[in-house]
């Protein structure tokens, strides 16, 4: 069992849970994820390791509650526990050894960008982060990223930082020059938009993909993604890939596989037949 030692609400639907997982905290690398199963009858969910404290033996999970499973996870309180956490899974981020990197995070994806920026900083790479949200209250991990380099915040409604999308800020940063690599994590349309900006400029762009997974070890093949015309498994071949080669249409499409089921599960919750809020 993995105890929850701290819990924080980062935005209206994003929660941070710090949980005990000493081995994973000790060896995890930027870009890696864990598979989490809350308890009996729960789904296995892939979550990026947003941060870790090796000395305390804890890892940070940042969860956007969209469906029944994620709502149940974020309903857990400090002192309660998650039954199963397996990892660290996936290949670590391919970090550059020197130079300047642009890290772009959208919504909950900003939490995935954080460990990448941490890794880059450790390598001595200068990090510029561009992060965004719908409005001020949806921006997460700003202070953490400020400790690692310069940060530009964008909001769709202009309530905080720069008015507009992260891609607008990214265009300006790229036009200023000196960016050796871009790391972009966020909703699929955002990653696609970033790639559309960087591809003509020939700037290498790494994206982190979040397809549906079951085991996370290559066994099920549910996380099939298209990369450079090849079908790869995000769990063992990724989760990060060269954004210029990723088939975002396929990713977007496959992410919709269980949309009807998600609504049925939530509807069952409202009927009171599920366990949300019964703790």
């Amino acid at each position: 069992m993995h105890s929850i030692v701290a819990k924080a609400q980062l935005s209206p639907n994003v929660t941070r849970l710090d949980v005990t997982a000493p081995r994973i905290a000790q060896i995890r690398k930027p870009g890696q994820f864990v598979i989490v199963r809350r308890g009996e009858d729960a789904e296995r969910i892939p979550l990026t390791i947003a941060d870790a404290d090796a000395a305390a033996g804890t890892i940070a999970l940042v969860i956007q509650s969209v469906g029944k499973s994620t709502q149940e996870l974020v309903a857990l309180k400090p002192g309660e526990a998650i039954a199963d956490i397996a990892g660290p899974l996936g290949h670590p981020t391919e970090l550059i050894a020197s130079g300047r990197a642009l890290c772009i995070g959208g919504g909950v994806g900003t939490a995935v960008v954080h460990p990448i920026a941490q890794g880059l900083k450790r390598c001595g790479v200068a990090v510029l982060s561009i992060i965004g949200g719908r409005s001020k209250e949806w921006v997460i991990f700003e202070s953490e990223l400020r400790q690692l380099g310069e940060v530009v915040v964008c909001t769709d409604d202009g309530s905080y930082g720069r008015h507009g999308f992260v891609t607008d800020a990214a265009k300006d940063a790229l036009a200023a020059g000196g960016i050796d690599v871009v790391y972009a994590v966020g909703p699929v349309p955002m990653m696609r938009a970033v790639v559309n900006v960087t591809k003509p400029l020939g700037v290498r762009t790494i994206v982190s993909l979040n397809p549906v997974m079951v085991d996370g070890t290559g066994m099920c093949g549910g996380c099939r993604v298209g990369v450079g015309g090849q079908t790869l498994f995000a769990c063992v071949d990724g989760p990060e890939f060269d954004g210029h080669l990723v088939d975002f249409d396929l990713l977007m499409d496959r992410l919709g596989t269980y949309r009807d089921f998600e609504q049925r599960a939530l509807a069952a919750c409202k009927d009171g037949t599920c366990k949300v809020g019964l703790k």
Binding site: D41, A42, E43, Y258, A265
Partner: peptide
Amino acid sequence: LMAAYQFPRSDTPVL
């Protein structure tokens, strides 16, 4: 393993 035949009592769906 994930008991999708009991969905939505279990959380994992299957088409």
